[in-house]
Each structure stands twice: as structure tokens, then as C-alpha cells.
Design a protein around this nucleic acid. Structure first.
Lengths: 207, 207
DNA sequence: AAAATAATCAAATCGTGATTTAATTATACA
DNA sequence: TGTATAATTAAATCACGATTTGATTATTTT
């Protein structure tokens, strides 16, 4: 009585994933609807059944899905009140980087294609809001640590962007099967930023 | 006897700058030849007089020029043998960030449009070579510092990519007239990475 | 198993934008 | 000055790719 495969028609999520892959390879403008369609064994026209609003809508949903997911994961860590700020920061860096290395296509889209979505006035506002919330998670934890005296005084917005820049870049250069695993990279990078925040290792004097 | 303006026809460099600006705003694929032309008061067709090989060639030259320039600046610091590794690192971070904030259009192109150039097999190889040389400048200085015992043991390639990711991102979010100047940002970020390399501020124990 | 609905396709549309071409104007040079 | 060369233009060309349209085929629902 085995259930039948039931893997007939594709769903929106399949298409979003496929699109992310193509975007990663060719960029949004370089990606043809037919490329995306081919990835899920459809023709270009068929995509309009699932996404009546077309190509840009697909991009918007890829980015929203991707950002929402990583935000939720990081948010969960931030909400864990059993953790000290330094443990929290280590864990959110870890979580974030593993999120990126586990889905490099979406990660790359978040870096490279955000600009495209921002050209669309409606999508722009909503997206920027999401992104700010995400950034807030970091600034919040860093500020907590400073207030608690376990991090040195840093310019929190800049430090946040420093971390996020480093993270984003991982999504660009990371390749599965490379020298290091996502875990190892996450480890190394969280060490780096925690060391950077250590109140004892004061930076060398300026000249 | 004032000399006449002599500002008649545009030159290749004007066009490259103009192109970088348009690329920053719309991305390579979103940039029309007519957009670039308009920026220097020409028509699309005229650009082919200066760049017979067309749009892609313009991108290639923007990236090469940009990367060569920043490389040269950083190289000069690396070659200065009067500096200790930590001073060197501080100075190359400084140099690099000021380079980015002084020409955000080219900086953004280096981040966002590199992928485009890499699709071109010939350009790809040459470009990757340049980029590796650039990255080498960082790894070299970091390794020197470790060998000299003034930096803690880090995974040099990862640390390098961490720095470069943070840098690249500056070119994306930095806006002239923002809260901080390029100098202040460079200062903050070099503090961050030097603190991260400090051999005394050992990172917190892993759980 | 009809009827209704969902997925899909193949073949138009339709606009856009890079590149080419054939002149025209400006500049340098001898 | 007049001729060669450099810049520039306006008007084709030409291809490509997003979207639309009108069937066709699957899948549900009752």
C-alpha cells in the first residue's frame, strides 16, 4: 500500500530555490526565466502560473524568505536569556554563518541582489525594515555586552557592519568541500570577533 | 592670453568613472550604454569610438583600474620596511578603507560586478590573478606578525577574508556626509582587527 | 466519471538595448 | 589653408528575453 510518489508538480518553494541557484550563477539580470524554469523542468511561461507577477516577484520572495529564515534563527538565540552576551554573540555568529554556508545560493542573493529589489519602491521599504531588524539583533547583543562590561567600548554600528560584512562575504567565497567546514569557519570568525571585543586586549596606541 | 578651456572631448578615464557611477546605481546589466553616455554628454554610439569592444570591456577596465590602484597603494605600505607588522596592518587597513570611501562607485563595482567579469574566460584568469595578489598582501603581513609573535595564531586565509569582507562591505554602506568620516571608520576597523590579533586577549573558551 | 480547477506547454507579442553604419563636425598637422 | 584624423551623431539593425495568449493535459472534488 505504498503511497504514490506524489511528486508531480513543482511548488513555489522549489521555484524559489531554483531561482536562487540561477541568480547565484548569473545574477538577477543575467538569469533568464527559461533558466529558472529549466532548473525545475518547466517552460518559462509556466512560471507565471506560480508567480503571476513575474521575475521581480520571484526575487523579492527569495530575499524575503532568506532573510526571514536567518532572522528567525538568530532571534531565537538572542531571546535565550540563559546566555551571557559573549556566549550569545558567539552563538549568533555561529548560527548566521552556518545559515549562510548551508544555503549559499540564497546567501549570495542576499548580498548581490538586494540592490535590485531596492529599486522597487514598495518592496524597498518593507525590505529595509526587515534588514534593519536583523541588524538590530547584533547591535543589541553587542551593546548588552558593553553595558555589562565584558566587551570593550566600540562604535556599535560600525562593529556590527564589520561583522555583517565579514559574514556576507562568506556567502560569496565559501565552497562546499573546501579546506574548512562551515563549523570551522564559524568557529574561527567568532573567535576573531570575540577577541576584538575583549576588554583586556586594548588596541595598540595610535601614532 | 588665457588658454582656451581645452575641455572639448571626453577621454577614456572620464567614461570609466561615469560607468562606475552608473554601475553603482543600476548594476552592470541594468546600466544602459545610453546611461553611461549621458553621464558624459555623449550618445551611446559614441562610446564605441573610445571602447570598440563595448560594454563588457568598459566593465573590465573599471575593475582593473580600480583594483590596480588600490593594490598599488597597499603595496607601498607593505614594502615599507620601517614598519612593524602591527603598524603595517593598521596602515594597510587604513589605506584600503580610505581608498574605498574616496571612490565608492569603483568600490561598489569591485564588490558587485566582479562576478560578471568572471564569466568571461580570458578576463577571468587575469582578474583572479590580480585579486589573489591583492589578497596576498594581507596574508603576508598577518603571517609576518604571527611569526614575529606579536599576533596570536589565527587561520590566516580566513582572517584575511574576514578583513576583506568587512572592507568590501564598507564600499556598500558608506555614504559621504554620514555620521563618521572615512578616517574614523578606518580607525575603528583597524582597532577592531588589531584587537582581534592581540596575543593577550585570548578568546573565551568554547563550550 | 463528469465538472471544475490546477499545471503545463508551444507559439505569439513586444519592447528594449547593445552594437553597427553612414554621415557630419571638430581638431591637428604639415 | 587644406587634408588627414579624431569625435561625435542620428538612424538603422538585430537579437534576445520577459510576458501574454490560447490550447492541452492532470488532478481534485463531488
Amino acid at each position: 500500500m505504498a503511497r504514490k510518489p506524489a511528486e508531480q508538480s513543482v511548488n513555489r518553494l522549489d521555484i524559489l530555490l531554483a531561482a536562487a541557484n540561477v541568480f547565484r550563477r548569473k545574477g538577477y539580470h543575467g538569469a533568464k526565466m527559461s533558466d529558472i524554469a529549466a532548473e525545475v523542468d518547466l517552460t518559462a511561461g509556466s512560471l507565471y502560473h506560480h508567480f503571476p507577477d513575474g521575475k521581480q516577484q520571484i526575487l523579492i520572495e527569495v530575499l524575503n524568505e532568506g532573510l526571514d529564515q536567518i532572522t528567525a534563527e538568530v532571534q531565537a538565540v538572542v531571546d535565550d536569556n540563559t546566555l551571557m552576551p559573549d556566549e550569545k554573540l558567539r552563538k549568533i555568529i555561529y548560527t548566521n554563518i552556518l545559515g549562510l554556508t548551508h544555503n549559499t545560493s540564497v546567501a549570495a542573493a542576499l548580498v548581490f541582489e538586494t540592490r535590485t529589489i531596492l529599486e522597487n519602491p514598495e518592496a524597498r521599504k518593507a525590505y529595509l525594515k526587515r534588514r534593519d531588524s536583523f541588524e538590530q539583533l547584533y547591535t543589541q547583543v553587542i551593546q548588552e555586552g558593553i553595558d555589562a562590561g565584558i566587551f570593550r567600548q566600540v562604535d556599535v554600528p560600525i562593529f556590527t557592519k564589520t561583522i555583517l560584512g565579514a559574514h556576507n562575504w562568506v556567502g560569496v567565497w565559501y565552497r562546499e568541500g573546501g579546506r574548512l567546514t562551515g563549523e570551522q569557519i564559524a568557529d574561527e570568525m567568532s573567535n576573531t570577533f570575540l577577541a576584538a571585543l575583549s576588554p583586556i586586549g586594548v588596541p595598540a596606541a595610535k601614532n
